[in-house]
Design a protein around this nucleic acid. Structure first.
Lengths: 361, 361
DNA sequence: TTGAAAGCGCTAACAT
DNA sequence: ATGTTAGCGCTTTCAA
């Protein structure tokens, strides 16, 4: 690799001048500047950011840890972050925790070695502990919250879940099942709470027997839905609210397998929109989340934090006794949107003794 | 951040000894080693990889550029690469070209500053030129090939397309349409060629009027399919072979919009399996590709290359006149697999004057 | 077995 | 406006 020394030599200047010509052009005589730029072009010079970062004490690098890059929601969120980081002149390094606190810990350690100036994270259930290994490093939590005093960028899960539930009660459903996510992840509990509150507001009793837990995977949704939909006809829910996109796929497959027509026999509302939700048949009614914007907002906020605190994070100066107290960490929240498609309808008028025959998958 | 100096100080040794105790433990007296390790633990020391890389001249870093992280095929491939890189003790930095040669160029430049030891890339159509800006850096091309003399890891697109086409001719189809991808991307041309060859082998004439180009996006598939399926009934294809996963979504939506039943009125085969293909109704017959394994294989190969050439890429020594000639770049190829589901069936027995009425989306 | 010292490539004082 | 020099944190000779 060509070094700045090579450029300097070819342009007949010192490395200092070469460096200046490249990064503070106006500090250098026009003619010299041209020589250096030409030399750099000719040699295909690209500065070694490692050396630069080491010298400047800032890497212009961010860490990004998502829980599951194969989930389109997280992929889109990651894209929002990376695009935004680039706009601000940062690079965002992407890691995957696969929803596993152990892997998250390893990712954070690896990341720490890279000296990022800040970290964006979709925290796993173990993030509380893991994040304490990063003292002095600005962290923004995305989508969920770990309980640590970090800024968070989330969507209004409570409101989204309420809107979904209200939609179902509004159609006349009174036996509504829910497939909830892991109870140690905030999005899951918030959606569960929203579900209960909306039921209460509609005067529909909350029946714990109609609520099944899952771990966010398609298969969990499948099993939970199969379970709920196999109840005797008089107890079986006429509508299902599913807590995330993956589990919704499973729930739809379960309904299909049982020969239940959507929405005639069963209404389904999913949380988080997706290509699949739009193109399955019938298209799915969902609570959509602005995934890309979530990433953009989180990254903008983090960069803002870095800019304000002035580049070099000085963990060595814990808290200057004087000066204004640090402001409380921001809690940014984006709205969700209920998109009514064709998977929801009023409940069947009469209780059918058995599911109607249909083509079993 | 705590430096190795802090560790050394706490353990009462020189930084040299501290460094050795951490990375070459057996070179240090047991007792000293313990002191250092304990000090490191206590301080939560994490080496600054920037400084280490700068000193050692190797970063243990790889670059990975995919064309579209939102496409599950690329996401899975990226995961295969990243998991494998980690297993080998490397970190893979992920970038997105969004299928845009300009963006690819910027990604490569940014990457180059990070001093990666090798690059894995799903090349865009402009990659030939772009890759020439990386002299002396090992590159492995993934999924497609740019024409540069780099090792490539691809799937057998020709065979996959032939299997798909043979499946359709075997069912009795003689008017088979194809939606092909960009003709400057090798996967697209290979699949096109496989289609033609299989038609020929089956004695079915190739009709250019039934072939429509697209640019890999859902919308392209939609338009191309709408076009083909709007032909007069006697000319309209009874089966469609679609060149990638995104365009297949569009094609299915087009068929649905025209009220064509799958597979009764129209058979569809897609290239590349996906969650969507498995869970749409009817489940889609596809040529599946081992995306994750593709990433694994490519990364294994790249790391093997690095290990053999011994770490430090010396672009300064172009070609030692003596010694064995460099072996030709490897061309690794993985098989595809035709998965027959329920979107394919024999063609309608009689030519219907018009598409049967159905529920329009 | 350990320590002293040099140097990776770059930039920012400081000096001219 | 330009050059000289020191030093970011680390590893690795070389010497003891």
């Amino acid at each position: 690799m060509t070094r700045i020394q090579d450029v300097a030599q070819l342009a007949q200047v010192s490395t200092a001048t070469a460096s200046r010509a490249l990064s503070r052009p106006q500090q250098v005589a026009a003619e010299t500047r041209e020589r250096v730029l030409e030399a750099a072009r000719q040699l295909g010079y690209q500065p070694n950011v490692l050396a630069r970062s080491l010298r400047q004490g800032e890497t212009r690098t961010l860490g990004l840890i998502v829980a599951d890059i194969l989930n389109p929601f997280h992929a889109l969120l990651a894209k929002g972050v990376q695009d935004t980081a680039e706009r601000h002149g940062y690079s965002a390094f992407l890691f995957n925790s696969d929803e596993d606190p152990q892997k998250e810990r390893r990712a954070l350690e690896t990341l720490r070695g890279q000296q990022p100036q800040g970290v964006l994270i979709v925290p796993t259930s173990g993030a509380g502990r893991n994040l304490q290994t990063l003292p002095g490093l600005p962290v923004v939590e995305l989508d969920r919250v770990s309980g640590q005093p970090n800024p968070t960028v989330t969507v209004d899960n409570l409101d989204g879940a309420m809107a979904a539930t209200r939609h179902l009660t509004g159609l006349g459903h009174t036996r509504i099942g829910m497939v909830v996510g892991q109870q140690d992840i905030t999005t899951a509990t918030e959606r569960h709470t929203g579900f209960r509150q909306a039921l209460r507001a509609a005067g529909v009793p909350y029946d714990p027997a109609l609520v099944r837990p899952g771990h966010h995977r398609e298969d969990d949704g499948y099993r939970a839905a199969l379970d709920l939909l196999s109840l005797p006809a008089a107890e079986r829910p006429t509508a299902l609210f599913v807590g995330n996109n993956e589990m919704t796929v499973g729930a739809v497959l379960a309904a299909r397998e049982l020969g239940l027509r959507i929405p005639e026999d069963l209404s389904i509302v999913g949380f988080d929109d997706s290509r699949w939700a739009q193109t399955m048949w019938p298209p799915l009614t969902v609570v959509s989340q602005p995934a890309y914007e979530l990433g953009v907002l989180a990254c903008d906020h983090l960069v803002g934090l870095l800019t304000r605190r002035g580049g070099v994070p000085s963990a060595s100066l814990p808290l200057p006794a004087t000066g204004p107290p640090a402001p409380a960490p921001a809690r940014l929240q984006l709205p969700t949107q209920l998109i009514v498609r064709r998977s929801t309808a009023p409940p069947p008028a009469t209780i059918l003794p058995a599911p109607p025959a249909a083509d079993p998958a």
